[in-house]
Amino acid sequence: MAPTIVLGYDGSDGSQAALSTAVTVARAFAARLTIVFGYEPNPMGGESSDYRHQLEALGQGVVAQAFAAARELDASLEIEQLVVPLRPAESLLEAAIERQALVIVVGGSGERPILGAILGSVPHKLLHRSTVPVLVVPTPE
């Protein structure tokens, strides 16, 4: 079975940069690409079912964009689209562990390291907790 590259994608500039790197890596290793969008509403907000539906619809749109962009870079790539109702870092980890992925590719926090620190940036969390190698792609200037 072909190895898997897991890409975290949320539509931001950083994740777009990560996408092109992920495609390059996947091609180099003859791997398949799994594009992951994770979301989880704050449990302090109470019930959330229709909010979740909205988030999922949003996520599917975002992942479909990534799918199209990746296809454009490499038409022969095997691509999986995934929208997971878990926090971004957790959804990436889960997807990667389940697929025994070679590497998780994510975009860096870019020019907003402080905002990233406040929000708890995904690469930061992954670098500390991941049992799968993590590749952080800098956002181009």
Partner: peptide, 20 residues
Amino acid sequence: MAITDVGERPTEQHQAGGKG
């Protein structure tokens, strides 16, 4: 709930019933 292009990757383990 996920759109799977290739291979199977159901997320049902996260879902209880149809309500997400």
